[in-house]
Design a protein around this nucleic acid. Structure first.
Lengths: 199, 199, 199, 199
DNA sequence: CATGAATGAGTTTTCATTCAT
DNA sequence: GATGAATGAAAACTCATTCAT
């Protein structure tokens, strides 16, 4: 404890401040002073806790991705899947993802931001890519027994692409959560039935 | 020819230069001088042909969206749909879209850029939104007879969301065109069969 | 005729345009294009008729000063001073000056502009200075017989300074013409009576 | 001391630098870098202490006007007017004003600059106007008992207009201080005698 | 003569980063 | 650890002036 923890706490404070800033302005338009003000910290200190602005960004990317991944892991481990069919497991996964990720407008904004940054920033790109891969990997498990590893992964790749497309659309179209949820669930149902047609 | 044309030509030249610039850097990082250099034009001229940097952007958004919309319209009007089923029409649409839009990596990069800009730029947002709406409207035609207007639109909304999600993934994952096409076509087939199951 | 006259006409047109511009913006803020637009002439032509922006200014200074001087001369020569006392002559002069110069708000604005420019522009300064000298010289004539050349000039120097101070105040205080005239005339009366007390 | 004082000190330093700059160039020609160089300060700092160039100007106007007003107030409060006649009080006021204001060439230059700026700058105009009003108000006190409030004010309005006209002439004519003082005092004497004739 | 495209130096302003206190 | 003053590179934008057509 002590030093290290204060360090980490401050860093987290700054990272969360950047998160809030990104809901107001683009990363490029967000200044060091904006972040500092939002964090309630002297702007000079940001360079004490982070070498440069980009490092805050990288820290933030790590934070936001880890956070949602960990929450997912925790949810998954708490799931009782004993007597669920593969279809039910997948459906349950989609329900979780809808609520926590796809219908979370602020998160969607942040993701759009990160996609754009990743276009010209290798580090951000590789972090995002890795998380998508892990997400797809985890989610395609229920499909493997029916489709084999490779096809299961491809299907899940498409599923997640769809979810991200919907997340983006919800922001661009300024959609209400309920409207968005309805479209989302109907299409997911269609896909689920296509994947597990016997039911 | 003459005045008007030189003006328009130069504006197009500048807009296309911005297009190329956006493949190298973000819009915010792209400077007026970058665009000028790329266009082979004195940077002072950019302010002669456009009031400010944002106007170039708006011109570019208009250009890129109009261009692809017009190409689509031209393609559609050249289509012989006389003896095609609704399913075939939709499939044909998806094939066109795959090749011209979704699998066009450079275009996808530009779109990611525009999504991000639209987060904090109303004008860009409304232009993008309008184009997506038109696109969905046009594409859902073959579904209307089977599903009714509203449902047809919702399904197409999801379809286009999927395509955009795939476009984004192709960039983030640095996917090869063929790999991407395969995943795309398989999932589209699955959805097509779900929509028109009789076949 | 011909060439020369067209030249001069155009130059006058431009100079008058500058005059109108100066009522809207400072000289520094007035651009070549502003003047051209106001004159209804292509801006490239301004450099055909005048070597540079400053030359237009110098032309304008010359124009505005000559114009009012000539009008004064014409008025003076039309005056019937045969049976007027010196005091009446001076009073008549002041009345003319009040109406044509001091109470002319637009002219006052222009003069303030010229004073400021003259601070850092020798040519403008010397033109203004010369005109004030001539003005004082002409106006002090009626005083010479009573006060001698030197004192007459000094008194008139003060009188004109007062008029210019009032012109400036009328602009800074945004005074109505009538209010201004009243103050002006009362003080002039006081001075007149001080100069020619016998009446 | 500390923070606040450094801030104020730097602001004053910058404002005084602008003052010196204005003796060399017009406000419009004076660049941020000119002011910074004159102040011996990095030009970036000017935007640290002042939001924009105009704010420096407004600060300067406030500074220069307050400064001379305060000096005048201090002088007035130190005056022993106990056994002075109204005429003597007014004469004393004029002597003070002559020395500190009207015959101060650099100050006159600054005022001409401010008049010109005020033509197109409401804030500067209202500041100048207010100061002139206060000045007239204070100075017309000795006249009130003889002329009534309104007439006293009108007379003083003219007096101050005269002083400002003379200040302007001293600059335009490049007059020596002594020459200027002589003309000034003679005319003031004439007016004084006109106002208080009994003596 | 007329036009308006082209040039490029110059202006204000912003901001990440550094550093003395 | 804080603080906020200082630096300087770089950005968007302006505009007098030139010049090809």
């Amino acid at each position: 404890m002590g030093r290290k923890n204060i360090q980490q706490e401050r860093q987290l404070q700054i990272i969360k401040a950047l998160n809030r800033c990104l809901l107001k302005k683009s990363y490029k338009e967000t200044t060091i002073k904006d972040i500092a003000a939002e964090a309630g910290i002297n702007h000079g200190m940001l360079h004490y806790y982070f070498k440069e602005k980009e490092e805050i960004l990288l820290g933030f990317v790590d934070f936001i991705l880890s956070k949602h991944k960990n929450e997912f892991i925790r949810w998954r481990d708490a799931q009782q899947t004993g007597d669920m069919t593969q279809k039910e497991i997948l459906k349950s996964f989609l329900q979780y993802t809808n609520e926590k990720i796809t219908l979370n407008r602020n998160l969607s904004k942040v993701f759009i931001t990160l996609w754009e940054i990743s276009l010209n920033n290798r580090k951000v790109k590789s972090q995002i890519k890795r998380v998508y891969q892990e997400w797809i990997e985890l989610a395609c498990e229920p499909l493997k027994s029916s489709f084999g590893d490779e096809s299961a992964k491809q299907i899940m790749f498409s599923m997640v692409a769809y979810l991200e497309g919907m997340a983006m659309f919800s922001v661009v179209f300024n959609m209400g959560k309920d409207e968005n949820r309805q479209i989302l669930e109907r299409f997911e149902e269609r896909i689920l039935n296509s994947i597990f047609p016997e039911e």
